[in-house]
Design a protein around this nucleic acid. Structure first.
Length: 506
DNA sequence: CGCCTTTGACCAGCGC
DNA sequence: GCGCTGGTCAAAGGCG
C-alpha cells in the first residue's frame, strides 16, 4: 500500500521539516520562537517558490518547476483539501493581500497555516475550503451517527450473546473443550477477556458458572446442541489427534492457543482477485493443497505464522463457476496482536462469526443480510449464513458492488486517508455530493474497484482503523502509519470471538 | 542455511 | 466394512 508515504505527506511536521530543509523562510509566524504549539506554517509562495508559478496551487505540473526536490511530492491541490476540516480566516487580518495565511485544522491538536501570496488564488481557495469545510461538517455528523449506531449495535449484540449463552447452555457438557484447561490458559483467557471484543466477553462471562473452572466455550458461540452433531464432532477429535501427533513445541504452542480444539464457525470471503492469495495483513504458511470435489481448482491450506502456535488457518480456493473469484475461508482465533490491516479484516469477520455463533439454530440457514453487518466495517454486499456445512459458515460476498450506503465518506474521516484511496473514493451520500463531477467520480471509483484488487482491503483498513482500532496518536504513529511490508502490530487490536479471524480481498 | 512450497501419504469422519 | 472426502503431516526440493 502507498498509505505510509501518503500519510507522511499529510503530517504537518513533515511540511515544516521539508520547508526548513529547503531553506524556506520561517518568518510567516514570527519564527519558531513564537509559533504556537501545533501550528505549522508552510509558505508555498515565498520567493524561492514563486518561480513555480501560481499553477502550483492546483497541483498541476508543479513538480517540474520546483527547484527543491524535497518538495516535489507536495501537492497543494486536492490532497490538502481532502484532509482538512476547517478554514481559519482570522489570522490573516491585517496582513497584506499578497501574504494571506490559510489555516487548516487537520486534527484537534495540529494546524497547518499556508501563506498565500496570490489574492486571486487565495479567494478561490477560500471559497473552495469554505465549501469543503461545510461538507466536512456534514460528513463528520454522518460518521458520528454511524459510529453511534455501530456502538449501539455492538452493545446489543453483546447483550444478546450473553443472554443466549445462558439460555442455550446445554445440559450435556460433553461439548466442552476439555483440553483447554492447561494452567497457562487461564491467564490467556483473562488476557482475551481484556483484549477481545464483546463477543469474547460473552464467551468468558458464561464460563463463570462452570463448576470446574474449565475454559469451556460459550454454548452460544458453539451454536448449542446442533453443533455437537456436526462440526464439533469433526473438530474436537481432530484437535485431539493433533495434540497426540505434535511434538513438544507444538504442544506448548497449542497450550498457548486454546482456541484450537474449539474451532466452530468459519468465515468465508468471496472476492474477485487474480492473485493466488489475497493480502489480509497476516503472514501465512502453506501447509497443504488438495483437490476438492466439484472444483477443478485445488484448495490450498494456510496457517498463520505471525505468532508461534497461532491456531488460525485459512483455505484458499477459486470459485468453480467463476475462476476470477477467490474464496478464502478463515477458521480459528489469533493468539497474538494483529496488524492494522488484519485488525480491520478481523473486525468484519469477528462480527460475522459472532453473529453466526450467537444466532439461533433455526435461523442460521437464512439469508440474514444484504448490505450491512453491524460492527463490520467491511460491510459486505451479501452475507449468508449456513449451518448445512460441517461447520457453520458465514459467507461474505465482496464480488458485488459495495453498498453505497455503507461506504464511509472520505472527507469525514478523522484520519488522513491514503491519498490513492481518497482519490479513488469520491462517492458520497447524495446529500453531500456538492460540487463534484459525479459522472467522472463514479467512473473513477468504478475503475478503482474493478482494477485495484486492494481497494476494498485498503478502504476497510482505513475505515476500521477508526472504528475498530485505537486511534493514531498525534504524531501519526499507530496503525495508520505502518510501513510495508509488515504493518505494525496493534497491541490493543481486538481479539476475535470464537472462530473468527481475518478476511481478505487482495 | 533457513524458510517456504510442493506433494504424496496418512488419518478420521461420513455415507452407503 | 469399504470407499470417498476433507484435513493435516512431513519429507523433499526450490529459492534467496
Amino acid at each position: 500500500m502507498e498509505r505510509p508515504r501518503e500519510m507522511a505527506l499529510l503530517q504537518p511536521s513533515d511540511f515544516l521539516q521539508r520547508e526548513r530543509h529547503s531553506g524556506g523562510r520561517d518568518d510567516a509566524g514570527g519564527g519558531a520562537g513564537d509559533r504556537r504549539e501545533g501550528i505549522e506554517e508552510v509558505d508555498f509562495f515565498c520567493e524561492s517558490r514563486r518561480k513555480g508559478g501560481a499553477d502550483d496551487l492546483s497541483g498541476r505540473g508543479s513538480s517540474g518547476s520546483r527547484k527543491d526536490p524535497s518538495f516535489s511530492d507536495v501537492n497543494t491541490g486536492l490532497h490538502l483539501l481532502t484532509v482538512n476540516t476547517g478554514i481559519g480566516g482570522d489570522q490573516d487580518k491585517g496582513r497584506p493581500d499578497d501574504e494571506k495565511l490559510m489555516k487548516f485544522d487537520c486534527c484537534a491538536a495540529q494546524t497547518i497555516v499556508f501563506k498565500i501570496c496570490d489574492p486571486w488564488q487565495l479567494r478561490i481557495l477560500k471559497d473552495e475550503l469554505h465549501r469543503l469545510s461545510e461538507e466536512n461538517q456534514r460528513l463528520r455528523s454522518t460518521l458520528e451517527q454511524l459510529t453511534r449506531n455501530y456502538s449501539a449495535l455492538q452493545g446489543q449484540l453483546h447483550l444478546a450473546m450473553q443472554q443466549q449463552a445462558r439460555e442455550n447452555r446445554p445440559a450435556d457438557q460433553t461439548m466442552r473443550c476439555a483440553k483447554n484447561e492447561a494452567s497457562g490458559q487461564l491467564a490467556l483467557s483473562e488476557q482475551h477477556l481484556v483484549e477481545q471484543g464483546p463477543a469474547a466477553c460473552a464467551h468468558n462471562n458464561v464460563d463463570d458458572d462452570t463448576s470446574d473452572g474449565e475454559n469451556e466455550p460459550s454454548p452460544s458461540l458453539s451454536n448449542s446442541a446442533d453443533m455437537a452433531s456436526k462440526g464439533q464432532r469433526a473438530t474436537v477429535p481432530a484437535a485431539k489427534r493433533r495434540l497426540t501427533h505434535d511434538d513438544e513445541s507444538d504442544r506448548n504452542a497449542d497450550r498457548a492457543a486454546p482456541e484450537v480444539p474449539c474451532r466452530k464457525a468459519r468465515v468465508s470471503v468471496r472476492a474477485r482477485s487474480d492473485a493466488p492469495m489475497i493480502n489480509d495483513g497476516c503472514q501465512w504458511r502453506k501447509y497443504g493443497q488438495k483437490m476438492a470435489k466439484g472444483n477443478p481448482c485445488p484448495r490450498a491450506y494456510y496457517r498463520c505464522t505471525m505468532a508461534v502456535g497461532c491456531p488460525v488457518r485459512k483455505q484458499v480456493q477459486r470459485c468453480a463457476e467463476d475462476k476470477g473469484i477467490l474464496i478464502t475461508t478463515y477458521e480459528g482465533n489469533h493468539n497474538h496482536p494483529l496488524p492494522a490491516a488484519a485488525t480491520a479484516m478481523a473486525s468484519t469477520t469477528s462480527a460475522a462469526a459472532a453473529m453466526i455463533l450467537s444466532g439461533s439454530s433455526t435461523s442460521r440457514d437464512a439469508l440474514v443480510s444484504s448490505g450491512f453487518f453491524p460492527g463490520a466495517p467491511y460491510a459486505s454486499t451479501m452475507a449468508t449464513l449456513s449451518a448445512s456445512a460441517p461447520f457453520p459458515t458465514i459467507t461474505l460476498d465482496l464480488t458485488q458492488p459495495p453498498n453505497q450506503l455503507h461506504r464511509a465518506p472520505v472527507s469525514a474521516m478523522p484520519f488522513p486517508l491514503p491519498l490513492s484511496l481518497a482519490q479513488k473514493l469520491p462517492t458520497f451520500p447524495p446529500a453531500v455530493q456538492l460540487g463534484y463531477k459525479q459522472s467522472s467520480m463514479m467512473e473513477t471509483i468504478t475503475a478503482a474497484i474493478t482494477s485495484d484488487p486492494n481497494f476494498t482491503a485498503a478502504l476497510a483498513a482505513a475505515v476500521s482503523s477508526v472504528i475498530a482500532s485505537p486511534r493514531v496518536d498525534n504524531n501519526g504513529n499507530g496503525s495508520g502509519t505502518s510501513s510495508h511490508p509488515r504493518p505494525p502490530v496493534v497491541p490493543e487490536s481486538p481479539q476475535l470471538p470464537q472462530s473468527c479471524t481475518t478476511f481478505s480481498t487482495n
